[in-house]
């Protein structure tokens, strides 16, 4: 099992390296260059050349890539081309904001979705099961942008219950923070819950059809006890998988949600950086998103390996 996990971790690192190549190559081929974007209409050939060499754009791309990769590995993400401030100073506060919102949504969505999923499995075929399924399908089918606007319309514009802007700042009170971020949190909960709920239900039901569950029933155990003690633990691996997949989404997929609610997170930061053609900022933000995705998927796989009884207790050759 250890070798399996090591192999998986190695694959993760390889993927991260590929991400870095793609990010660097992708930002290289954006139309226009940053020197032109900074100088705009006032660009002359001389000032362009001067600014290019000042920004190090005259160095060959390959060398720039390795300098940049070396910097990232040592925690130095370079300086913003537009303002000259260190990228990390600008980036980490926004990363923290994105993580805070993801955590707020995750803490509510995951237990709720897993709980409802198990409940739906236990009450298979009842009104509750159907209602949960239909609601989940409906939420997952609506684009989060649209869902966000619907919530703004009903909970903010029409009723005035919650603010439509997720306006947060350093030093605001905790209650104010929760009020400000509740609408985006709700959108994220709705979108992620659907998948986790349905996956939990399906896996638990799949396990319920196994012979040993029938045995448990024949022993005279109650429905609830069978689901909780016998079925759920065996369904854990796929559930953990889908949960971490959705947490990765919570971190990387928030760009649209941040735009709808004007939330000062990493997604908005990246959009800003792209429009200013500020490459070090775009690259750093893209790397963070990539890393979050790769690492969380890696954790999911490793958890699945660790939770798989057959891999945990190997008995030589399998039949």
């Amino acid at each position: 099992m250890v070798s399996l996990i090591a192999k998986r971790a190695g694959l993760g690192l390889l993927t991260l390296w590929l991400v870095s190549v793609l990010v660097f190559a992708g930002t290289e081929i954006l139309p226009g260059d940053v020197a032109g974007a900074i100088l705009g209409q006032s660009a002359t050939p001389e000032s362009l050349a001067a600014l290019r060499s000042e920004l190090g754009l005259d160095v060959p791309a390959l060398q720039r890539y390795f300098d940049w990769l070396g910097g990232i590995l040592t925690g130095d993400m370079g300086r913003s081309m537009a303002s000259g401030q260190p990228v990390s100073d600008l980036l980490w506060p926004r990363f923290r904001n994105t993580m805070a919102l993801a955590a707020y949504a995750g803490v509510i969505a995951v237990p709720l979705a897993v709980g409802l999923g198990i409940l739906a499995a236990a009450k298979r075929g009842t009104i509750f099961d159907r209602a949960a399924n239909i609601a989940a399908l409906a939420f997952v089918s609506l684009p989060e942008y649209f869902l966000g606007l619907l919530l703004v319309l009903w909970l903010s514009v029409k009723t005035g219950w919650l603010p439509s802007l997720a306006d947060t700042y350093e030093g605001m009170g905790l209650t104010a923070w929760f009020t400000a971020t509740t609408l985006p949190m709700l959108v994220l909960v709705m979108v992620t819950m659907a998948q986790i709920l349905r996956m939990t239900r399906t896996t638990v039901l799949g396990v319920m059809d196994q012979p040993y569950i029938e045995t448990a029933f024949l022993k005279g155990l109650k429905n609830g006890r069978v689901v909780m003690r016998h079925a759920a633990p065996n369904a854990a691996a796929p559930i953990v998988n889908v949960v971490s997949f959705n947490i990765a989404y919570l971190i990387t997929g928030v760009v649209l949600v941040e735009a709808v609610f004007n939330y000062n997170g990493l997604g908005r930061f990246m959009v800003d950086a792209v429009s200013k053609r500020d490459l070090p900022m775009v690259q750093a933000a893209a790397m963070i998103f990539g890393a979050a995705y790769v690492i969380l998927n890696m954790i999911a796989d490793i958890a699945a390996i660790a939770l798989n009884p057959r891999l945990r207790h190997p008995r030589g050759k399998e039949a």
């Binding site: 903010s156 514009v157 603010p163 439509s164 802007l165 306006d167 709808v260 609610f261 004007n262 800003d272």
Partner: peptide, 19 residues
């Protein structure tokens, strides 16, 4: 001053009375 570059978010903020 709240910076709201997205036109929909800006309009919502006004309609919900936040700005």
């Amino acid at each position: 001053v709240v910076v709201i570059n997205d036109v929909t978010a800006r309009t919502n903020a006004l309609m919900s009375g936040q700005v």
